[in-house]
Design a protein around this nucleic acid. Structure first.
Lengths: 347, 347
DNA sequence: TCACTCTGATTAAACGATTAATCAGAGTGA
DNA sequence: TCACTCTGATTAATCGTTTAATCAGAGTGA
């Protein structure tokens, strides 16, 4: 129950040096008027005492906690490690801590998670929204990372352009019939990626889109996608809208005895952890998460600094879209004019 | 710059009701002596004003922030989503927030991350340590989640037993020669898993262990593992020590024209997100992260409640190991007495 | 009636930092 | 010398909550 004081505080330093707390505070923050040598002495002494300012005291006085919230409604998302890492890094560099909030599940839980963060006094938050939900702005500045086409988006990877990269790459390899494999038609991100692919196709090319969640509603989770059949229909390239889907396609095709990239090509999105190490390694498109996180966080921090306290605003950044980068690996190759599923050549 | 007051505070409620702040505080926390009806009135009024206690004020007074730190030195780890989700859920249920800290890289960075958390005033932290590092306990209670064989471990999945499950499963399918595929020999977790597999093998069974990092030091990252050759040497089962490695093995074998599970079996660990959806879906062993997180957090919270402030202790829990659960899917099947790599049957 | 206890409330002092307001003293120009 | 400015420091209030200490009043037993 004891509320002892573990570390030294301002007043300890002050009395120990025979000056006032205000002077110590000013010296350390460099704000008031303190003589150069005194500043020196105070800083030195503070350092040697191992002084760490109390966030609680500061927060109480200033009304700012120095903490940002990170809301990831789709936390099972395999992109999470990258996102969390990038946000934490950027925030930490700006002197902020990162409080995570997960809403397992529905939109109500997302709102609830946001409220929890607000109650904990975050100064602002970064939200990667659940598919197609709008953030009714909370009681603090909010930066949204989704996709440039989403209204209210702060900054995001240019998924549309990423799609064009994929289309261009496949077109250059001579592919004419492309099957786009998506998960959920509600997802802004996936829609933009698919749209980008379609818009990047050259005359004479044809695409079809397969949305897996529909298929799974009928046939159960993890059901076969029937890709071998698609190969029979003349599709030579499978452009998945995420690396997880690409992996699923890759293994299903391989299991059916179809060789990649000899028979057909497979591409993904995101450059997730397994993409470089599967066989064949996955051609994909990478987003510069560090850059995106950096922009989001610095825009957020700027807004926090300039806006009055507890104001709910959607943060805007100068750069709203960050280019994606095509990573060509082994899973894509020249189009095979007539791939056969029944016989195959080993190299 | 204005330090305005966004929400109502204790004194607002107090004056509005014509009572003292202390009474309001007591009524809301149920601590002092307040008459039943007054408690009722105060609670009601607080609720309708939408009162939210200031964490800063409380933290300053009590010396507790209500925040736990989560240190994940190996944040790129694909297990991260599950861990973070489970910890956040458990902490949130106990009334705590979760501050994340990532140390990209070395052990020094890990220490630095821990310090950052301490500076932010966390009441305790959960650490998933970098391979084989010991946590020199910080200035607050620390719960460690690694593996039961690690000294100082608080609670963890029983990786050894998980290994035995795998061994038993493969033995039951008639496999006699097993190749264990690990990543890093320094990892306590992987060593325990491998040890469990070996200890669970029946007489007449034989195993060999392939550590990938060595291979990659010579041949570069993402190099082939030469598994087809191992099949030629009579190995019929490949027991990877993580699902990522299993995936790598699976695709390499498939690409070499070896059918799974007809020719050989592949198993993993962790039941990561892709395990159910690849073809063939992956037989693996799942850890009950929710349970582990629950135990770790409640042990941590208990320690925080009872110990005096800022004391650095390694938390211990009653239950130290949590059983892993075998998930049998399609990637494992009866041993094929003489698998051939050059020809295969499609079902 | 007096001394005492018990109840239900209030008072006031923290916690640690920030910052506006104040102040002492030195220097300066007329 | 006086009025003024400038510098370098101090004083004191404040943020919102918790909690030990205090207090007024009612009830009680002798």
């Amino acid at each position: 129950m004891a509320t002892s004081r573990p570390g030294p505080n301002l007043s300890r330093i002050a009395t120990s040096l025979g000056v006032s707390v205000a002077t110590v505070s000013n010296a350390l923050s460099g704000k008031g008027r303190v003589s150069g040598q005194l500043v020196e002495r105070i800083r030195e002494h503070a350092a040697e005492l191992g002084y760490v300012p109390s966030q609680a005291g500061r927060a109480l006085r200033t009304g700012r906690s120095g903490v940002l919230g990170l809301v990831l409604p789709d936390i099972a998302n395999p992109l999470f490690p990258k996102i969390a890492q990038a946000i934490e890094f950027a925030a930490s560099a700006a002197g902020y801590g990162v409080l995570i909030a997960d809403s397992r599940g529905d939109v109500a839980a997302q709102t609830e998670a946001i409220n929890r963060l607000v109650e904990r006094g975050v100064d602002g938050m970064v939200v990667i929204p659940r598919r197609a939900t709008r953030i009714s702005s909370a009681a603090c500045p909010v930066a949204v990372i989704d996709t440039p086409s989403t209204p209210g988006n702060t900054v995001a990877a240019d998924h549309w352009q990423g799609g064009r990269e994929i289309a261009g790459h496949l077109a250059g390899l001579g592919h004419r019939r492309i099957l786009i494999i998506g998960n959920n038609q509600e997802s802004n991100v996936q829609n933009d990626r698919a749209g980008g692919i379609r818009s990047g196709m050259r005359p004479g090319m044809h695409s079809e889109t397969l949305w897996i969640d529909r298929l799974e509603q009928e046939n159960g989770n993890g059901c076969p996608l029937g890709l071998a059949e698609k190969v029979g229909q003349g599709f030579t390239a499978f452009a998945a809208l995420s690396d997880l889907l690409a992996l699923r396609a890759l293994t299903e095709l391989q299991q059916a005895g179809i060789n990649i990239p000899t028979d057909v090509s497979v591409t993904g999105f995101d450059d997730l952890i397994w993409s470089p190490v599967v066989t064949p390694s996955l051609t994909t498109v990478r987003m510069d998460m560090d850059r995106i996180a950096g922009i989001a966080v610095s825009a957020l921090v700027d807004t926090i600094r300039t806006s009055s306290i507890r104001e709910g605003v959607l943060v805007t950044a100068e750069i709203e879209r960050v280019a994606m980068q095509l990573i060509v690996r082994q899973s894509s190759g020249p189009a095979n004019p007539a791939p056969r599923t029944s016989e195959k050549e080993n190299m």
